[in-house]
Each structure stands twice: as structure tokens, then as C-alpha cells.
Amino acid sequence: MKRTDRTREGWYERFLRWAGGEEPDGPEGPEDPERQEFQEYLEYIDAHGYLEFGAYRLMRWKERKEKGLIPDTAPAPHHEAAKPAQPELPKRRPGRLRQQVKLYRFLSVAVTAVLAGIFLAVALALPTFGDRSAPAVNEVARRYLEQGPEETGAVNAVTGMILDYRAFDTFGESAVLFAAAASTILLLNNPRRRVRTFRGPDELTNLLGRRLLPVILLFGVYIVLNGHLSPGGGFSGGAVLGGGLILASLVLGEERMEQLLPSRRTTRVTAVCLLAYGVMKGYSFFTGGNHVGWDVPKGTPGELFSGGLILPLNICVGVIVACTMYTFYTLFLEGEEE
């Protein structure tokens, strides 16, 4: 399995090099069948407009098969050998597939229309938008708003809710982020293709980016630290910080950024923050669901150092989100070959 993957990649890389106009050498001489096919493909898209290479190969193969140029035992695209003719292929009537496609389209439109109709009827029957007596505005929201500042120490009710009343939920969200980053690393990380070509920032990026970068990073830090006092918090501030890191990578260059913040370190920092979050919120396991009995000093609501554990939790979430965004960026950037 692994081996076929590798050859496929090699093939793709070679195509990229050929597309860059590199001259054939060694075993990749002009008589190389793959190279010939690629040349034909280039001519074809010059003449007929763009077609994806996969679609092109499929089309060519079908053409040749229909003409009888290749017997049925001939290789399918990508492969060295193929089965003899399919037994069930001739059974299909020619118009059949088209009919099925039509039916599928009709059915999907019909299902969507019915769903939309039901939703619309429900939406019109809901309590009026902005109605104060709607059942959605119930005692839960009232409790969060009225008792929130005393119970959590956070002035921002949303932050107080997601990081104190429902902190376990947020822990799960952070874990989901971490899991998504981990699976993206598994999918895209390729140690063989570490080589990066960076052309350096152009003048405009340099000029604007260098001035904007500190402001954006500072703004992100501000949002994270003031999560319990003003709109924002770990998630929003982390996203702004992640955007700032991406801008830094654009302005400073990826090599410099790789020295400052290697991908190994971001993963480690994320894991540490996740663990710290778990430890900080884990005491509820021992004290009971309402985390009664072990009071973290709340401080005066409205000051920076208030809200008990909300500030460190916000920092943890912010770091996790920022690192994840930056990791996504570096992963999607890797394997660039011009």
C-alpha cells in the first residue's frame, strides 16, 4: 500500500517538473511513454481548453477501447493489467444511466424542496424574531445574566458561560481541534518533501505586513487576555493570533518562521495547553458537578485579574486555537513545488 502511494507521488512530482519546462534526461528520455502521454495531454488542453488530467486519461482510454485499438485485456489507466471484459457491462442499456441521473437530480431537488418547505413553515410558526417572551429566553439565560458576574467573576456572560458553567463542553471542543490538527498532519505531512521554495515577500507585503504585524498580534493578545471583560475570548483571540502568525510567516519568510516556531514545538505547546486545561477543570470531577467546595478566588468582577480560572483557561484555549490555525497553514503550504 505504502509503496504504490510513493510511486504515485513520484509520478505527480515528475509531472510537475515537466510542466515547469525541465528538459528530459537519463531514463526520462523523449521515448518515455509517460512523458509522451503528458506531451499529448498538454497539446490537448492547448487545443480544447482545460481538462483535468484524470478525466483526460479516462477519456483517452475509453476512446481507444471503443476503437478496438486495445483489446479488453489492455491496461486501464494507471495500471499495468486489467481484467478481461466485465460480464455486467454489456447488460447495461445505453439510455439507462442517463435516466438514472435524471431521476437522481429530480429526487434530490424534490427532497430539498420538501425539506425547505417544512423548515419555512416551522420558521414562520416560531415565536416572532426578537420576542422577549419567547421560550428560548428562559430562566437559564436569566440565571447566567443575573448571577453570572458573582458566580463566575466574568463580566462577559458568553465567556463566563463557555469557560465556567460549561467548561467541559469547551474542553471537548479543544480536543476536537487537536484531533483535527492531528489527522491533518497524518494526511498531509510528508517528511520527504520538506524542501520549500520561498521567493521572499514582495514589496507591498513587506511594507504593509511589517507595520501591521505587531498591531495584529497585540490585538490578538488583547482579545485573549480580556476575554472575561469585553467581547472575545480564547476562540476569537486565538483565531486572530493564528492569522497574525500566518502573516508573520508571509512577511518573515518560512525559513525564519520555522526557526522561530518549528512545527514540532507548536504540536507540543498545543498538547501541553490541552493538558493544562484538563488539569485546571478536572477538579470538578472530585468536587462534584457543580464544582462546589473548592473555591478559586474570584476577584472583583471587571478587573483584569478576576474571574478565577477563566483567564488561564482563556490563555490555554487561545494558544490551542492559534497553534492549530498556524499548523493548518504550514501543512497546506508544504509540498509546494514550482
Binding site: 428560548a136 439565560a141 447566567y144 445574566l145 443575573e146 458576574p149 463580566v155 462577559n156 456572560a157 468582577p301
Partner: peptide
């Protein structure tokens, strides 16, 4: 929903 302590719940949107 940026609520100073002791404010009326009626003047804010639902934070949930």
C-alpha cells in the same frame, strides 16, 4: 451580554 454585576437581565440578549 457584557453584564456589570447587579444589572437587569432584561436589557441583554440571550448568551446561550
Amino acid at each position: 451580554p457584557i453584564v456589570p454585576p447587579g444589572a437587569e437581565a432584561e436589557t441583554y440578549v440571550n448568551p446561550v
